[in-house]
Amino acid sequence: MDVQSERRFFLLALGVIALYVSPLFLLGENAHIRVHDNLDSNIAWYKVLSESGKITGPLDAKIPQIANGKLSRNALGSELTGIVWLHALFPTMTAYALSQTITRVVVFVGMYLLLKTHFLPEPRWMAVRIGVALAFALTLFWPSGMLSTLG
């Protein structure tokens, strides 16, 4: 296989990832997402944190929207994570869709490069490299973990 074929297959795989996450963008709040670890906790926490104005606040700052203002800031995620800032900068479902897209694209490219550099460098393994990287990018994972799980 030549470089041009590999480039086409690589772009095709990115297209598959785009198709996979497209319902999140097209359907927005009507898209199907798992309730567990999403709607019952993490997404709600990110929304509350972004609306509290305490994203970069001190750890002992109180979050007024939870437990009558008795919950400390340190009970919610660190301000140093990308997903917290996605939820601070975008509407909830857009942030969720972007986090899914970023994670899956980075994971695909990372696995592809790992296989190409260390395990399957010969051109004849092009389809296997891209196929395995695509399969890995489409696996189920804890969405709020972003790259901590698959990265």
Rank of each mutant, 00 (worst) to 15 (best):
H32N: 12
V84G: 06
V21P: 02
A18Q: 09
A133K: 02
L89V: 14
A133N: 01
R124D: 00
K116F: 03
S78N: 13
Q100W: 07
M111N: 07
M1T: 13
G77E: 12
A18F: 04
T92P: 12
E29D: 09
L14R: 00
L27D: 12
A95H: 11
P143V: 11
A44L: 15
A127H: 05
S22C: 03
N38Y: 04
L115W: 03
K54R: 14
L138V: 06
L12K: 01
V109Q: 08
T81S: 15
V132G: 02
H36I: 12
Q100Y: 08
G28S: 04
G110I: 06
T103C: 03
T92H: 10
T81A: 11
G15V: 00
R129E: 00
P91G: 12
L86C: 00
T81H: 13
S99V: 11
S78R: 13
P23R: 11
L19D: 02
K54G: 01
P58A: 15
L115S: 05
A97N: 08
N42G: 10
D60Q: 15
L86G: 03
P58R: 14
D60A: 13
G145Y: 00
T117C: 14
H87S: 06
P23H: 08
E51T: 11
I55W: 03
H87P: 00
S41H: 13
V132I: 13
L98D: 04
L86N: 00
H118W: 15
A75D: 06
T149H: 12
I17Y: 03
A133P: 03
H32E: 14
M126C: 03
I102Q: 07
A127D: 04
I102Y: 04
E51M: 08
R8S: 05
T56N: 14
A135K: 06
L19T: 11
F108Y: 08
V132R: 06
I63G: 05
L39F: 09
P58G: 11
R73V: 10
R7I: 14
V35L: 07
W142L: 10
T103A: 04
G53M: 01
W142R: 08
L39M: 10
G53K: 02
L120V: 09
A97M: 10
L113Q: 06
R7G: 09
D2Q: 09
I43W: 01
Q100A: 08
R34V: 11
S148H: 07
D37S: 03
M146Y: 00
Y112V: 10
F119M: 04
W125L: 05
S22R: 09
L114P: 01
L71T: 14
S148Q: 10
T139I: 13
G82Y: 10
A44K: 14
G145Q: 10
P91E: 05
V106W: 09
G28R: 07
Y96H: 09
A133V: 01
P121L: 04
F108E: 00
T56H: 11
T94H: 15
L12N: 02
D60F: 01
P64V: 13
V48R: 09
F141T: 00
L24S: 12
N38M: 02
